[in-house]
Amino acid sequence: MEIRSITPCKSGPDIQHVIAQLDNEIDIAKACESLKTEDGKSIKFLRCSEELGAIRFTSGAMMVLVYKSGKITIRHAASEEVAKGLLDRIAELVE
């Protein structure tokens, strides 16, 4: 996984917006099933669309989008370390 950018969110300078790219494309249906095991624990409001090729959910205050292409965006991360930890967990679940 490659982290492509880390920038401050428009909502505040202490909040991060992170864009990462996984090495492979993602099977949305399979990834959604894997993420459902976390639903209600660290992941809430899980929404999956094979038609759009995207998965959306929240984790705490962070809003996460996972795309079929392997791109992952995290908005409202409290820190770079928090975002990286979540990215690692997502990569484990969707690859």
Rank of each mutant, 00 (worst) to 15 (best):
A61R: 05
C48D: 10
S42V: 11
P8V: 00
R75F: 08
I15R: 01
A77E: 01
K68M: 13
V94T: 08
A91N: 09
R47N: 11
E50T: 13
E38G: 02
R56G: 07
G60A: 04
R75M: 11
A54C: 15
E50W: 15
V64E: 03
S69I: 09
Y67R: 11
I6E: 05
K10Y: 02
T37W: 12
E81F: 09
D27Y: 12
E80A: 01
I26M: 10
E51I: 12
Q16L: 08
K10I: 02
E95Y: 13
I55M: 07
A20T: 01
E80I: 00
E50I: 13
G12Y: 00
R47K: 15
M62G: 01
I6Y: 03
K36P: 05
A78G: 10
A29K: 12
Q21E: 09
D23Q: 12
I6Q: 01
L87F: 05
A29F: 15
E92P: 03
M63K: 12
P8M: 03
K30Q: 14
P13Y: 01
E81S: 10
A20F: 00
K68Q: 09
T7L: 13
K30C: 08
I26Y: 08
I26K: 06
A54R: 14
T7S: 14
C32R: 02
E92C: 04
S69F: 07
A61C: 10
A83Y: 03
M62F: 03
C9D: 00
E95H: 14
D23V: 12
R47H: 09
S79M: 06
E95L: 12
K41R: 07
R4K: 15
A20N: 01
L22M: 14
A77P: 02
R56F: 09
H76L: 10
E51F: 15
P13G: 10
E38Y: 07
L22D: 05
T7K: 15
T58Q: 13
I3K: 02
I55D: 02
R4G: 05
I43V: 09
L87A: 05
Q21C: 06
F57N: 00
L93G: 00
E25C: 11
E33G: 09
A83S: 08
I19R: 01
V66F: 08
I6A: 02
V66I: 15
R4P: 04
A77T: 00
C48G: 10
F45Y: 13
G70W: 06
S59T: 06
D23L: 12
C48W: 09
E80W: 00
E25F: 13
H17R: 15
G12A: 05
I74Y: 03
L52F: 14
K41T: 05
A61M: 10
Q21I: 06
T58I: 10
L65C: 15
L46C: 05
